[in-house]
Simulated scan of single mutants.
Amino acid sequence: MKMFTEVVSKALAKSLKLEEDCFLNQFGERAALQARFNYYLCCTTPELVLGLKSHADGTGYTVILQDDVEGLQIHKDEHWFTVPTISDALLVLMGDQMEIMTNGVFKAPVHRVVTNSERERISVAMFYTPEPNKEIGPEEGLINEERPKLFKKVKDYGDIHWEYYQQEKEALHVAKV
């Protein structure tokens, strides 16, 4: 996963015509990788039971391996869209910290997990976050007259995000200019 996150971070930078190590530098040498294994029971009333409440991740990004049971949904334009499952594929979701680093070019989607009435669901999520006490901010190459600086530099954003998440609130506003 460490190699995978390095490849993804470099690819994201290249796609924005930035120095390929710029995001790796912001994550730092001791960037954290944490895994969470998720098990969602099947539920006879899925319209009444959420597997995971709506939120945006406070990570740099999250890498998800899903089984073949749909349940992950993304919120866009006031509607929930189900993310299709692809066998043996890894899904990469941007987190708030990558939205900050890219000055809003990449967005951290609000998402949730719904339960399934017929089958249980399993996924593995790998959260990639900057090292502790690391200050992050928008890459200079993504700030210009057409796209002014949207975010200020922040430190320990993951802690800030966690506090807001527990209150069922979003935290990204604390980093906005």
Score class of each variant (00 low, 15 high):
Cys42Met: 13
His79Pro: 01
Gln97Tyr: 09
Leu150Val: 05
Glu29Leu: 06
Leu93Met: 15
Gly158Gln: 00
Gly141Arg: 11
Thr62Pro: 03
Asp21Ala: 09
Val154Gly: 09
Val105Cys: 12
Ile74Trp: 06
Ala89Glu: 03
Leu50Trp: 03
Thr59Trp: 01
Glu47Ile: 11
Arg112Ala: 02
Gly158Ala: 09
Val69Met: 11
Ser54Asp: 14
Asp77Arg: 09
Val69Arg: 01
Tyr128Lys: 02
Asn38Glu: 04
Thr82Lys: 14
Thr5Ile: 10
Asn144Gly: 15
Glu139Asp: 10
Lys134Tyr: 01
Arg30Phe: 10
Ala56Arg: 05
Pro46Ile: 07
Leu50Lys: 12
Val69Gln: 12
Thr44Gln: 13
Asn38Cys: 08
Thr62Ile: 13
His55Gly: 03
Gly71Lys: 00
Glu70Arg: 08
Arg112Cys: 04
Tyr39Gly: 02
Lys53Arg: 13
Val105Ile: 15
His75Glu: 02
Cys42Glu: 13
Glu19Tyr: 12
Gln66Asn: 06
Glu47Arg: 04
Ser54Asn: 11
Thr85His: 00
Trp162Met: 13
Val92Gly: 11
Trp80Val: 08
Asp88Cys: 08
Gln34Phe: 03
Ala32Tyr: 00
Val105Tyr: 07
Trp80Ile: 10
Leu72Arg: 03
Asp57Trp: 00
Gly137Ser: 13
Gly51Glu: 01
Asn103Thr: 01
Val63Ser: 08
Ala35Ile: 10
Glu131Tyr: 08
Val7Asn: 12
Met126Pro: 02
Asp67Leu: 13
His55Phe: 08
Glu99Pro: 05
Ala11Glu: 03
Gly51Pro: 00
Asp57Tyr: 00
Lys134Asp: 12
Thr82Gly: 07
Leu41Asn: 14
His111Val: 08
Val69Trp: 05
Gln167Phe: 04
Asp156Glu: 09
Thr62Ala: 11
Met101Ala: 15
His75Asp: 02
Gly141Asn: 11
Leu48Cys: 10
Gln73Ser: 02
Asp159Gln: 14
Val154Asn: 10
Glu20Tyr: 07
Val114His: 00
Thr115Val: 10
Pro130Ala: 15
Asp156Ser: 03
Glu145Phe: 08
Asn144Pro: 03
